[in-house]
Nucleic acid binder design. Structure first.
Lengths: 99, 99
DNA sequence: AAATATACATAAGTTTCTAATGTATGCAAA
DNA sequence: TTTGCATACATTAGAAACTTATGTATATTT
């Protein structure tokens, strides 16, 4: 969801490629993980979808709803907290102080 | 496993309490998650166990084997890398630079 | 022409977690 | 004194979330 926050609207395949690019291939989002998640987020009102054809190929562009924007902000905050907690728990201060 | 690296030998229940304490209750390790993991790590040679009685209550003290120490160092490094990657991906630099 | 990339989707199987349940001892409060 | 909470182990059913494989179809590169 953070991808959509940063890049506006994106379609599924685009998300997999962008994440791969931004993480130097370290994180690969598989279709089996992504598509069901997108469908689920759409169903729960976090995402809106717009179907468009690029040539003859269908693209489903997803964007955050207002509710989705709130959720992303929340999730990112939770993840930040988690990192802080884990840094303390694993004593990662030295290694990550400027990583 | 990092708990054992920091604190020498520990028994299961002690690990749950220590993690809870160090994370201000934010991370709760449940027994259903912990005990099978400890058994599995023992079986695969990462941990050694020593059974002792504290009064009439059994405690199973676990400690890292040499192999286990290598593995912990590796896993912690991997997790550090993951955090760095996620910070870049989620643009968490500002929020966590001194968090 | 064949292989690779783009673009969607689902399904089987695995892993891994939570929640629930079980056994038993130790201790403190009602 | 007995009731409840903490200590200490363990297993299991069910849920969640993932990977791998498979399927359909178009576009591009070799």
């Amino acid at each position: 969801m953070n991808m959509l926050k940063e890049h506006g609207r994106m379609y599924g395949y685009e998300i997999t490629q962008k994440v791969k690019e931004l993480t130097d291939g370290k994180i690969q989002i598989t279709e089996g993980a992504l598509y069901p998640t997108l469908h689920s987020l759409e169903k729960s009102g976090e995402l809106d979808v717009e179907k468009e054809y690029f040539g003859k190929r269908l693209r489903k562009y997803y964007k955050l709803t207002p509710q989705g924007q709130t959720t992303v902000a929340q999730k990112v905050d939770e993840f930040s907290d988690f990192i802080v907690t884990m840094k303390a728990l694993l004593d990662l201060g030295p290694k990550l102080s400027n990583g």
